[in-house]
């Protein structure tokens, strides 16, 4: 108990990490609401959801999964690198993570614009003439991947800030809470995708 007494001047790494975890819980429940909606509509319209899922390109989905999983590893490695005081390697690994995230977003952009070409977007006449379940499937698809893509963007910004701070030595071997928390955030983005991928692309 002796170290439980912390005043403001004392930098408390553990507290920062715990705060981040609790924030991640809220993110989890934010997406959780959407997963609940998905679950309800999937039970109600399972045939339509099959049809909807088969219209998504599972190759792009798989590719994006590989990008995100790999980026999750590189960001975890960058933390190891900074802990071992290997600044250049950390910089390289964070850059790779941002690049993979950019690839993910590019893929997503092509995927969405492809759908838009076929006039599949919320409120479109094509969608309104589809089966009710398919309409809801695409509504969920846009809402879930859209919210997820927003998180990817935020993650990219966070990691870019880290890039600068590592370069300046503000994030270093002794103080790496920012990188640690950004990595945790990035892993959450990955976690959400791990569930989104089979639910949207695979269950056909």
């Amino acid at each position: 108990m002796s170290d439980s007494h912390n005043n403001i001047e004392h930098f408390d790494n553990e507290a920062g990490k715990m705060g981040m975890w609790i924030f991640l819980f809220t993110e989890l429940f934010l997406f959780g609401g959407l997963f609940l909606v998905y679950a309800v509509f999937r039970t109600k319209y399972s045939a339509d959801f099959h049809a909807g899922a088969s219209e998504l390109n599972s190759f792009i989905g798989t590719l994006n999964t590989v990008f995100l999983l790999t980026s999750s590893m590189t960001v975890a490695m960058s933390l190891t690198a900074i802990q071992k005081n290997n600044k250049n390697l950390a910089l390289f690994l964070v850059s790779v993570t941002i690049m993979l995230a950019a690839l993910f977003m590019m893929n997503k952009y092509f995927e969405w614009s492809h759908k838009f070409e076929f006039k599949i977007y919320p409120g479109s006449s094509v969608l309104k003439n589809m089966n009710r379940g398919e309409l809801l499937f695409f509504g969920l698809y846009y809402m879930m991947t859209g919210l997820h893509a927003l998180h990817v963007l935020v993650g990219m910004i966070l990691l870019s800030i880290n890039l600068v701070k590592i370069k300046r030595g503000v994030v270093n071997m002794k103080r790496y809470l920012l990188l640690e928390n950004s990595a945790l955030y990035w892993h959450l983005v990955d976690l959400i995708w791990i569930f989104l991928f089979p639910l949207l692309y695979l269950i056909t």
């Binding site: 509509f41 319209y45 919320p122 009710r132 309409l135 509504g139």
Partner: peptide, 11 residues
């Protein structure tokens, strides 16, 4: 966006 999650007319 008229996304339809809560609209019975859209399922």
């Amino acid at each position: 966006l008229n996304i339809g999650f809560f609209d019975p007319a859209l399922g």
